[in-house]
C-alpha cells in the first residue's frame, strides 16, 4: 500500500482541479483539500482500512465542497471567472468560461460533481463511489446532466459542441 505522502502527491493535483470546478473560488480550494487530507490522515492513523483511497478522497472532497458552498452563501462574491482568466485568454474564451461557471452554479451539487468527475476521466465505479449514486444509474444521470448543461448553454447563446 502507498504511504500517506505518496497518496497525497498523487491525488492532490486532480482533487485541486475538481474542487476548483466545484466551488469556483480558487482561494478556498487549499483549505478544502487540507481538511480532506487531514481526515484521511486520521482515518489511517486510527487503523481504518480504506480500500479505494481515490474514491474515498473524491467523496470527501465532494462533501467538503458542499460545506464550502453553503458557507459561501453567507458572503458576497467578489470574484468570478474573470479572476482566473489570464492575459492570454481571448475575450471569447473569457465569456465562455463565465458561461460555464454560470451553468455549473445552476446545477444541483450532485449533478455538478458528476459532470466535473466525468471531465476528469473517472470511471463510472469511481464516480458512483464518490457521489453516492448507484452504479447502474450513473449513465442515465450523466446523460440527463449533459442535456441540462446543453440547454443552459443554449439559453446563454452558446453551443456545447
Amino acid at each position: 500500500m502507498n504511504t500517506f505522502e505518496e497518496i497525497y502527491a498523487e491525488y492532490y493535483p486532480g482533487m485541486f482541479r475538481v474542487a476548483k470546478k466545484m466551488i469556483g473560488n480558487p482561494d478556498g480550494v487549499p483549505d478544502v483539500l487540507q481538511d480532506v487530507f487531514t481526515d484521511f490522515f486520521y482515518k489511517i492513523e486510527h487503523g481504518h482500512e480504506i480500500r479505494n483511497p481515490k474514491s474515498w478522497l473524491y467523496r470527501v472532497t465532494f462533501n467538503k465542497c458542499i460545506d464550502n458552498l453553503r458557507k459561501q452563501k453567507h458572503f458576497q462574491p467578489i470574484g468570478s471567472a474573470e479572476d482566473i482568466s489570464t492575459e492570454s485568454d481571448s475575450a471569447e474564451n473569457q465569456d465562455l468560461k463565465m458561461a460555464i461557471e454560470k451553468t455549473l452554479v445552476k446545477l444541483k451539487p450532485r449533478d455538478r460533481m458528476l459532470a466535473v468527475l466525468y471531465s476528469e476521466g473517472l470511471s463510472y465505479k469511481e464516480m458512483a463511489e464518490a457521489t453516492g449514486i448507484r452504479l447502474a444509474s450513473v449513465g442515465k444521470l450523466l446523460s440527463r446532466t449533459m442535456e441540462k448543461i446543453e440547454k443552459e448553454f443554449k439559453d446563454q447563446g452558446y453551443e456545447l459542441y
Binding site: 480550494v29 487549499p30 465562455l96 459532470a115 456545447l160
Partner: peptide, 26 residues
Amino acid sequence: KLASGLRKALSLLSQESKGIPIINVP
C-alpha cells in the same frame, strides 16, 4: 458530441495548483 463538448468546456475551467503545498497535519 455532447460528451466531448462537455469535456472540452470544463477543461477551460481547469486550473492547475501552484505546486503541491506541504500538508500541516497536527
